[in-house]
């Protein structure tokens, strides 16, 4: 990168975009499916679980887990792409 300032700005923009995407998923899995939409979701039943209840007590936690590891993996790639990784 020729201009370190410019690449810094682009890196930060890419970071914010990734965080926003992850937080949208985070919101949908917990506040969305587990709280705001819990009633319609509860009308779907898989095995003994009503889905709204399942997202509130199980599913959201699994989504959180996947999200953090996805974020960590993606951020490490961004670091290298913009050449700001740790030495």
């Amino acid at each position: 990168m020729s201009d370190p300032n410019k690449s810094g700005v682009a890196y930060w923009k890419a970071t914010l975009k990734l965080i926003m995407t992850c937080l949208v998923v985070w919101f949908i899995a917990s506040f969305g499916l587990g709280i705001l939409l819990v009633e319609p979701m509860n009308s779907i039943q898989i095995a003994g679980f009503h889905m709204g209840f399942w997202f509130a007590q199980q599913g959201s936690i699994y989504v959180f887990l996947v999200l953090i590891f996805y974020y960590a993996w993606k951020m490490n790639k961004l670091d290298e792409e913009f050449d700001v990784q740790e030495d």
Binding site: C22, L23, W26, S30, G34, V38, F53, A56, Q57, S60, I61, F64, L67, I68
Partner: peptide
Amino acid sequence: YGGSVYLMGWTGGYV
């Protein structure tokens, strides 16, 4: 179901 606040609240913070 009301107890879900603790499950989501105390894990979602890690995100």
